[in-house]
Amino acid sequence: MRLEFRAISKQFGQHQALRDVSVSVAEFQSLAIIGPSGGGKTTLLRIVAGLETPEAGYLSIDDARVDFSEASLLLHRRRIGTVFQAYNLFPHLTARENVLLPLVVVHGLSRIEANETVDALFERFQLSRHADRRPAELSGGQQQRVAIVRAIAIKPRFLIFDEPTSALDPEMTAEVLDFIAELRGEGRDLIIVTHNMGFAREVSDHCLFIAEGQVLEEGRSSELFSRPRNPLLANFLAKVLRY
């Protein structure tokens, strides 16, 4: 897929999260967005996900310009699978019901069709045993896997991950990252914000480095990680890769 940002700005109160961001990312399958905390990477991701509207600028995905009216963003969000840090699942619904909800309510599948879809996905990703448990009865890693299944069940155009493992312990992190790597292996398009540089490097073919509300470097991951041109990026990588 392709992404193009033109003069995108976003402000939260006094804080300028993104300033005049213009960048185009040519043909990628998996894009990692990296950078220091508070630098604007999550904001950029949320604009792509249709969860945030910029004050200025435009975004096009696969050469189609995104209309930032609420009615149009609702349709936009319905075609994308988004997974957050944590607490993606609704606590009053079982794992199965969490995945069923968007299929039945938003995408108009019959309960029978939707259940077949859920059964097949849970079977494939070894979640069948947990289908009738509520989120509180699942580990953090299992919760995130169910959340990812919910995101792919709707057959989205692409998947968005916003620091999907930052609330997990190392073992569960591996469980979730393996899952995401598997999805990439299936050829799904995905965009991921992550603090895990090893994972970003391994799973992505393109990468954006964002700091201070600007995209400071864009390129193929193989290039960007091994030969950073921007001094801030070099500094950042040196710091996060030290341990």
Binding site: L74, T82, N88, L101, I154
Partner: peptide
């Protein structure tokens, strides 16, 4: 929690 409203928005609920 706000995170739930956010999830609801993300899966495209009105």
């Amino acid at each position: 929690r706000d995170s739930q409203l956010e999830s609801a928005r993300a899966i495209g609920l009105t």
